[in-house]
Amino acid sequence: MSAEPTPIPADLPADFLADVDRTVSHYPVSMRSASLPLLHLWQERFGYISDPAVKWIANRLGLQPINVLELVTFYPMFRRHAVGKFHIRVCRTLSCALGGGYELFEILREQIGAQGDGHGVAVSPDGRFSIEFVECLAACGTAPVMMVNDDFYEQVNSPTKASEVLAHYKGKE
């Protein structure tokens, strides 16, 4: 395993542990079912899934680390490395492509100064923004669509609209 080591805080925050316990309680039949939810909780809190994260989750659920790692390597949303503070996802699939999704990707990529063609994550030089193509986001009627972290933006069909979306985050801490 090669991800950069993140320290697991020796004491995980109490509210995080409470979230974990509550989440696990949703799976009365098999704790293993809580693997994906715990990976989400971890990534939301700490940014990506480090080696210690894999071990901690496995341990919490009574699994082997490989049971958790094989999920991280399969499911596209889980990351082994940090991405930008603001992570942009642009829909690549047909309806959005017909509505200008590739053009949107290029505009955004250029504006944040990242390199790449959308395959894999590209990060801006200052590390604040990152961008990737994703597959159909289920909003095809308002193409092209994109997300910044959890926020959703539809019909981002002009350079002006794309800049407006970015401007909202550029000023943010």
Binding site: S30, R32, L39, H40, N67, E70, P76
Partner: peptide, 20 residues
């Protein structure tokens, strides 16, 4: 977590069991 195949009902069930 971003995998289309989880829409297939038996893939979904495996996923819900905490597996690939």
């Amino acid at each position: 977590a971003g995998a289309y195949i989880c829409g297939e009902e038996t893939g979904l069930i495996e996923s819900l069991e905490g597996k690939r």
